[in-house]
């Protein structure tokens, strides 16, 4: 443990800076999750659309955002867009890039869970003369939410961790603050250790929140608790970390 850990001056200097950074990290994460959720449903339902152009556009969007690096996407939205005459604020660029990137992963979750409904549900709706929109809104989506939640939990944690990358586009969140403190005070590993611990706690809180939501939305509580233990691994956990 480095010596500055026991130095009160170190704490009185770093605490306000890290607190400020933490607020930006939380802001970006929350806004990013909101954008990701909207993106996930728009692109995910687009993939299931009856209209071919909607399917193709959604597929193209998902492949491009999943197939390229988030760092490249951040650079594009912040540094390359000005060449088209569009200058986004660092926070806006960060939230858009993070939200679209994680939204593309989450879109596949939305598509997968809706497609995974048993055919009988869909057929029953058709038999009851429900239109396509009503079928989605009242039956298929509500039934799919419990299946989506565990994977959405992973997406949220990924988004939190990836929010550290917005330090590349000058947002003064935790990572930037840690860099700032390091430049100011010299090589201090303590700050980065501290920031690691903060991120760890935040991600555990998010994981806990997602578990709570899972329990809350479970259709059949006893059955879900059995399935939990034998959940098959998720091939694309979006493991950026």
């Amino acid at each position: 443990m480095p010596t500055d850990f026991w130095d009160p001056a170190f704490w009185s200097y770093t605490t306000p800076l890290l607190w400020k950074g933490l607020q930006y990290t939380l802001l970006i994460t929350v806004l990013g999750i909101a954008v990701a959720l909207v993106t996930a449903f728009v692109a995910g339902l687009g993939r299931l659309s009856e209209h071919r152009p909607a399917r193709w556009i959604s597929l193209g969007f998902i492949e491009v955002f999943r197939g390229t690096s988030l760092v490249a996407q951040l650079f594009f939205f912040f540094y390359a867009l000005p060449q088209f005459g569009v200058q986004l604020s660092p926070i806006a660029a960060g939230v858009i890039a993070l939200g679209l990137n994680e939204g593309a992963y989450a879109a596949e979750i939305v598509r997968g869970s809706i497609q995974g409904r048993t055919a009988g549900q869909n057929e029953a709706c058709i038999a009851l003369n429900m239109g396509k929109t009503l079928r989605m809104r009242r039956v298929l989506i509500p039934q799919s939410v419990p299946t989506m939640l565990p994977s959405f939990g992973n997406v949220m944690v990924d988004l939190l961790k990836n929010s550290s990358l917005v330090s590349f586009i000058t947002v003064t969140e935790l990572t930037t603050m840690a860099q700032f403190i390091r430049n100011d005070m010299g090589r201090t590993a303590t700050v980065f250790l501290l920031v690691l611990v903060i991120y760890f706690i935040l991600s555990q809180v998010l994981a806990l929140l997602s578990r709570f939501l899972e329990q809350h939305f479970a259709i059949d509580k006893t059955r879900r608790s059995i399935f939990r233990g034998t959940r098959r691994l998720d091939p694309v956990g979006g493991g950026i970390g």
Binding site: K161, N162, R187, A189, F192, F200, G241
Partner: peptide, 21 residues
């Protein structure tokens, strides 16, 4: 759990600063 719960970027900075020490 810890490695999965923390950002790769911070891990990289941490190692980059810590290893020379």
């Amino acid at each position: 759990q810890f490695v999965r719960g923390t950002p790769l970027l911070i891990q990289a900075y941490f190692a980059y600063i810590l290893l020379p020490d």
